[in-house]
Amino acid sequence: MKYVVDTHTHTISSGHAYNTLLENIKEASQNGIELIATTDHGPDMPGGPHKYYFANIKVLPREINGVTVLRGCEANIIDFQGNLDIPDKIQKNLDIIIASLHDVCIRPGSKEGNTKALIGAMENPYVDIIGHCGNPVFPIDEEKVVRAAKEKNVLIEINNSSLMKGGAREGSIKTCTRVAKLCKEYGVKIVIGSDAHSCFQVGRFDDAHKMLAEVGMPEELIINTQKDRILKYLKKKGKLADLKLD
């Protein structure tokens, strides 16, 4: 299976990543990635960019070196109602928003509280993806989250970095596998994100691919295999008005 989209990448603006946007795009083009979303952490992440960074991200070209660029954010969920750390007026002008729980931005809660936070974020019309929900630091009711994603038309991310040996969220494999199986059962679309904090991780999905193959995830539920899949999804949500599809 060929993957041509990476919806979760970070640059030096995130504060703890190591490459520039241009370096990420160069690596993407060499890896056969046709579309990259640049999704730096929201401002509540220690070392993260100011909210003005996201307000001004519209200055980035739509295409760089033959790679389509989506201007986005990995926003931090900051409470158990699912609110994010960037204002609505900025959210509505972004191409793509991942909503994620990070324990440096919100203290992990009960399974019920964490589940409520993710479902609350899904009720935000500007949220497109729920990021790395397999993190064992934030236990969730996986079935409730997946069923809510189906209802709200939100993509569930399978985060490659979470599955890597020595990766960012060790111990995620069990929950990620359960989430993937539920997405298959309920017909919920998923998206693989590299969560690259180095350009050398952009477009690399080996661990996520292995897990999804074991689960038997149908290709039609995986957004990454065709560029138009993510573009059509976002356009149906009222985004990407400047971008014409073939």
Rank of each mutant, 00 (worst) to 15 (best):
residue 121 A to H: 05
residue 117 A to M: 01
residue 237 K to L: 09
residue 244 K to C: 03
residue 69 V to F: 01
residue 204 R to V: 09
residue 29 S to Q: 08
residue 84 L to W: 00
residue 122 M to Y: 11
residue 134 G to H: 00
residue 108 P to L: 12
residue 164 M to R: 15
residue 80 F to I: 09
residue 136 P to N: 04
residue 93 N to Y: 08
residue 154 V to M: 02
residue 226 Q to A: 13
residue 83 N to H: 15
residue 212 L to K: 01
residue 20 T to A: 11
residue 213 A to M: 13
residue 65 N to M: 15
residue 11 T to W: 04
residue 21 L to A: 07
residue 221 L to V: 10
residue 203 G to M: 04
residue 39 T to W: 10
residue 32 G to A: 02
residue 99 A to V: 00
residue 148 A to P: 06
residue 165 K to R: 12
residue 106 I to Y: 03
residue 22 L to C: 04
residue 222 I to M: 05
residue 162 S to G: 01
residue 58 K to R: 13
residue 87 P to S: 07
residue 138 F to G: 03
residue 48 G to D: 06
residue 16 H to K: 08
residue 107 R to K: 15
residue 104 V to F: 06
residue 229 R to F: 05
residue 107 R to Y: 03
residue 94 L to Q: 04
residue 87 P to D: 07
residue 49 P to S: 07
residue 141 D to W: 04
residue 246 D to M: 14
residue 25 I to M: 07
residue 91 Q to N: 13
residue 212 L to C: 06
residue 225 T to W: 08
residue 31 N to W: 07
residue 151 E to F: 02
residue 206 D to N: 15
residue 179 V to T: 12
residue 111 K to N: 05
residue 62 R to T: 08
residue 97 I to L: 11
residue 229 R to H: 10
residue 182 L to P: 07
residue 97 I to W: 05
residue 74 E to A: 15
residue 216 G to T: 01
residue 19 N to E: 05
residue 236 K to P: 00
residue 229 R to V: 01
residue 104 V to N: 11
residue 42 G to E: 09
residue 53 Y to L: 06
residue 11 T to N: 06
residue 91 Q to D: 13
residue 231 L to C: 03
residue 184 K to P: 07
residue 135 N to H: 02
residue 207 D to P: 07
residue 171 G to A: 00
residue 135 N to F: 03
residue 146 V to T: 03
residue 40 D to W: 09
residue 40 D to F: 11
residue 124 N to W: 10
residue 113 G to C: 08
residue 229 R to M: 05
residue 147 R to Q: 14
residue 195 D to C: 07
residue 28 A to P: 00
residue 170 E to V: 14
residue 98 I to S: 07
residue 215 V to Y: 06
residue 8 H to F: 09
residue 6 D to F: 09
residue 39 T to K: 13
residue 173 I to G: 05
residue 23 E to P: 06
residue 42 G to R: 11
residue 180 A to W: 03
residue 166 G to A: 12
residue 54 F to I: 08
residue 78 I to P: 10
